[in-house]
């Protein structure tokens, strides 16, 4: 192509991630568990940390897990996500099963703000059928 060629590229285009198309990256990257040894509201949390958490950590090696005491406070789970957001869940007075449900909720979250989805499909790909055009197709005789 000579320097006088008329085909030029647009300045900058970026590509977008399709998580799960090639590699899948879990969006939850860190879970912090804060508990209190003394207070009764942490009883379920403490049981969860003792009985469930080792297995959970083994099954999810991609999540960094931090356990730290937070004396005289209600137990809290903090999830940190890839997009930089974080989400805190207070698990006071919960049974270990309830704590586990909250942990799994944080694990499966994307970190985005909760949004109401009104359309059945959201896609970055062009529709296969294309946009309907009044100028094409069979002519309808009225």
């Amino acid at each position: 192509m000579s320097s006088r060629s008329r085909t030029v590229a647009r300045s900058t285009r970026s590509n977008t991630l399709q998580n799960g198309v090639g590699a899948f990256i879990l969006q939850c990257k860190r879970l912090e568990f804060h508990y209190c040894d003394w207070a009764g509201s942490s009883r379920g949390m403490n049981a969860f940390i003792k009985s469930y958490l080792p297995r959970f950590a083994k099954n999810h090696p991609q999540i960094e897990i931090v356990v730290s005491p937070k004396p005289r406070q209600h137990p809290v789970i903090v999830g940190h996500f890839i997009n930089g957001k974080q989400r805190e869940v207070c698990v006071k007075n919960m049974k270990p099963e309830g704590v586990r449900e909250q942990v799994e909720l944080l694990r499966d979250a994307s970190g985005e703000k909760l949004k109401r989805t009104t359309k059945p499909v959201t896609s970055i790909n062009e529709s296969v059928r294309g946009i309907w055009s009044p100028f094409h197709g069979a002519k309808v005789q009225i």
């Binding site: 085909t7 590229a9 285009r13 977008t16 991630l17 399709q18 090639g22």
Partner: peptide, 12 residues
């Protein structure tokens, strides 16, 4: 696997 539409890069 990332999505890039090559046809958007052209500028005639």
């Amino acid at each position: 696997s990332r999505h890039l539409d090559l046809s958007t890069l052209f500028d005639f």
